[in-house]
Nucleic acid binder design. Structure first.
Lengths: 228, 228
DNA sequence: GCCTCCTTGATTGAATGCAAAATAGCCCAT
DNA sequence: ATGGGCTATTTTGCATTCAATCAAGGAGGC
């Protein structure tokens, strides 16, 4: 029975189905393709994803724990709405975490990691120059995540990612003003400098200010949307 | 059909079963009654809890997301072991969160909340005087949670609680030295004072120092245990 | 005597089935 | 015509069943 099945089918379903589903749904929610408030009907989702209800239900409950969906007992689940107060609170916590990340990154980041942040920074500048907002957001996210990762604290990274997934959705509905965008890019310049100089205190302050700017933009976008 | 059911039966089983199970298992794990490394056999647990496998499995996956259990694909789940590096990282993050909590609590805590913290503090002193370690831990936990709650940031509170649940388990296996215990009580005196004086900067520093002390004690207990 | 391979038992992963709750639609009374 | 109550359908919650994977033990060969 010598077989080469594992070659022809490298990892087919080696990963638990519910994890796969969690990631798929999370992406859909974070990218805004599942609008906040949307009902998650089990039957239609099982049909669309081609799976059974069991792993789907597990996935939904997992996302509920992450705060991306809300469970209405006996009434199913909906994509978690974006509430201004919760966005504010989330960004506040992220600020504290980024501060810690900045300190740790200054102390522990490898040169390779610093180089990667720098590379992402230039990529981001390119996106800004082109006016590619989506690409800009992508690089921006990557930079922040990279800094957090460079802190070398896995618990910190996980916690940050989770909060980030909730707050990130705001940006997909925000039309960044040119001024705010330019300001953000300038802030990133300074952040990068403080990081490569390993100036922990300064980096911490810069990250905090930067997040405050984001908060303002996010809340602006939210109130706009709610007005509409 | 005017009925008063909602009065006589406030919430009879209104709560989903899987939530109930999550809380039960979480308590068992946090209290150390389920020792780290223990296998969670689905069949025996369904028997002990008197439920079916479906809600149990959902609960286990939820706890895995919280980091209290680890999932071994196709081989079930075990109670998450207490690793020194992860405990360190967790306490580091908790430090950043407590710092934020301290700042916010100084700014927003109501007088009633302050009074409650003070009351818990005296209760804790009583436990210390009696040498009641378990009671001391309980009050200690309550104080820290209360401060975090007084910050008025629900996201912060949730995040903190989750990390706390992982790290808390260390204490149930730590024989606090008399010196460390006394020092912790003194630190709490200062923390309380800074809080009622609403001295945010000082409170932040004190909480950080306090947690460093805890970290030392925790790591000591861990290495001891691993040696055994 | 030891190693390898195969078989077997046990345990998890996923799917289906059944019961209860909730929503929606309809009929009737006012 | 409108509001209230009732029934029917949909949908969720939990239990059970079926299938796949893994660990262990034993038989056979080297």
């Amino acid at each position: 029975m010598g077989s080469i099945e594992e070659l022809s089918a490298p990892k087919i379903s080696r990963r638990p189905l519910h994890e796969e589903v969690v990631d798929q749904l999370r992406d859909l929610i974070v990218q805004g393709r599942l609008v906040p408030g949307t009902r998650l009907n089990e039957r239609v989702l099982t049909g669309q994803l081609g799976i059974s209800r069991t792993p789907l239900r597990e996935a939904i409950k997992l996302l509920a724990a992450e705060g991306l969906v809300e469970l209405l007992p006996n009434r199913g689940a909906i994509v978690a709405p974006l509430e201004a107060t919760r966005v504010t609170q989330t960004l506040q916590v992220m600020g504290a975490l980024e501060g810690l990340a900045g300190e740790l990154a200054c102390a522990h980041a490898s040169d390779a990691q610093l180089a990667e942040v720098r590379a992402l920074h230039y990529e981001m500048l390119a996106m800004h120059a082109r006016g590619d907002l989506a690409g800009y957001f992508r690089c921006n996210q990557a930079i922040h995540l990279k800094i957090v990762e460079a802190a070398g604290n896995a618990v910190l990274a996980n916690t940050y990612r989770q909060l980030n997934d909730y707050a990130r959705r705001v940006r997909y509905m925000a039309n960044l003003s040119k001024e705010r965008w330019d300001a953000a890019v300038r802030e990133h310049e300074e952040i990068l400098r403080a990081l490569v100089e390993r100036d922990a205190a300064r980096l911490k302050g810069l990250l905090r200010e930067h997040l405050d700017g984001k908060l303002g933009a996010a809340l602006g976008a939210l109130s706009e949307r709610q007005a509409a």
